[in-house]
Design a protein around this nucleic acid. Structure first.
Length: 178
DNA sequence: AGTATGATTGCCT
DNA sequence: GGCAATCATACTG
């Protein structure tokens, strides 16, 4: 899960579209919340590839979510990409999404980058960070298993994270002046 | 502000 | 048949 922290700031590109990762969650093979917890299946096979392999899965029958394998081959540790900063190919993201936000939340990232089964098992294209970022650690989102494990990492200075801190509500802030 | 619900597919018991 | 690493919408107060 240290890989999840290390990935913050790295630019993820798919077919020339993407941006710096600002929010990610770690899923280890021995974690009840991980798709690899119960061993290999047809769906999670890509998780058993070498580090840098993409694992793309269908979420709730609707969304495509992207993971980057971060453990040794055969181990099936991965990092869920939850949010990016829209940086490269923003116009194409807009066409695909049709609304804001473009790349906040794993389902939205998948749509903006046109993730799908054609990407599953491919090698992720990653570029190193261009600047230093703060990273904070919180609990993960949307889980029913192992909810307490603080394996979500994010850049608290980025406006493109799905939630600034663990349990703060989403949405715009109140205007500062009366 | 919070809470609820439908969409839709693959894997689980 | 039930549920899930989600999102957008509709409703309530």
């Amino acid at each position: 899960m240290l890989a999840a922290r290390a990935l913050i700031g790295w630019t993820l590109l798919v077919d020339g579209v993407g941006g710096p990762i600002v929010e990610a969650e770690a899923y280890r093979h021995d974690d009840p919340a991980s798709h690899s917890f119960r061993g290999p299946t047809a769906r999670n096979a890509a998780m058993y590839g070498p580090a840098g392999t993409l694992y793309v899965y269908r979420s709730y029958g609707i969304h495509w979510c992207m993971n980057i394998v971060c453990g040794p081959e055969g181990v099936a540790d991965a990092v869920l990409v939850r949010s990016l900063e829209p940086a490269v190919g923003v116009e194409r993201m807009r066409e695909r999404r049709g609304r804001e936000p473009l790349t906040t939340g794993p389902g939205n990232v998948g749509q903006a980058l046109a993730a799908g089964p054609q990407l599953n098992g491919h090698v992720a294209e990653l570029l190193p960070p261009e600047r230093r970022r703060r990273v904070v650690q919180t609990t993960r989102i949307g889980l029913t298993q192992a909810v307490e494990r603080p394996w979500r990492f994010l850049d608290p200075d980025s406006p493109f994270v799905s939630r600034p801190i663990s349990s703060a509500p989403r949405g715009r802030r109140r205007s500062p002046h009366p």
